[in-house]
Amino acid sequence: MDPSTLLITFLFFLAALLYASVGHGGASAYLAVMALLGVTPAEMRPTALILNILVAGVGTFKYIRAGRFSWSVFWPFALTSVPMAYLGGRIHLPVRYFELLLGVALLFAALRLLIKPGGEREGLHPFALGWALGIGAVLGFVSGLIGIGGGIFLSPILIFLGWAETRQVSGIAAAFIVVNSASGLFGLLQSHPPLPAAIPFWMVAVLAGGWIGAELGSRYLTAPWIRRALGVVLVVAALRVLVV
Rank of each mutant, 00 (worst) to 15 (best):
G118R: 09
G119H: 12
G119A: 13
E120H: 10
E120L: 11
L124W: 06
L124P: 05
L124S: 13
L124C: 09
H125F: 14
H125M: 13
H125I: 12
H125L: 07
P126D: 08
P126F: 02
F127Q: 02
A128Y: 10
W131E: 14
W131R: 13
L133G: 02
G134N: 02
G134R: 01
I135S: 01
G136R: 00
A137Q: 05
L139S: 01
G140S: 10
S143A: 15
S143Q: 03
G144A: 07
G144E: 06
L145E: 10
I148D: 00
I148R: 03
G149N: 02
F153D: 02
F153S: 00
L154K: 08
L154T: 03
S155R: 06
S155M: 10
P156G: 05
P156K: 09
L158H: 09
I159T: 12
I159F: 13
I159V: 15
F160Y: 15
G162W: 07
W163R: 01
A164M: 12
A164P: 12
A164D: 03
E165R: 14
E165W: 12
R167A: 08
V169H: 00
V169S: 00
I172K: 04
I172F: 10
A174K: 07
A174W: 11
A175M: 03
F176W: 11
F176D: 08
F176I: 02
I177A: 11
V178N: 03
N180P: 09
N180M: 05
N180F: 00
A182E: 04
A182V: 06
A182P: 06
L185S: 03
L185M: 09
L185T: 03
F186H: 06
F186A: 15
G187S: 10
L188W: 06
Q190K: 12
Q190N: 13
Q190G: 14
S191N: 13
S191H: 14
H192M: 14
P193S: 10
P194F: 14
P194N: 04
L195N: 05
P196V: 12
P196Y: 05
P196F: 04
A197Y: 10
A197V: 14
A198W: 04
A198H: 09
I199C: 00
I199K: 06
F201L: 15
F201V: 12
W202H: 11
V204S: 11
V204M: 14
A205I: 12
A205R: 03
L207H: 01
L207S: 09
A208S: 11
G209I: 04
G209R: 08
G209L: 06
I212T: 11
I212V: 15
A214H: 11
A214V: 07
A214F: 08
A214M: 12
E215W: 12
L216C: 09
G217R: 13
G217H: 10
G217C: 12
G217S: 15
R219K: 15
R219E: 07
Y220L: 13
L221R: 06
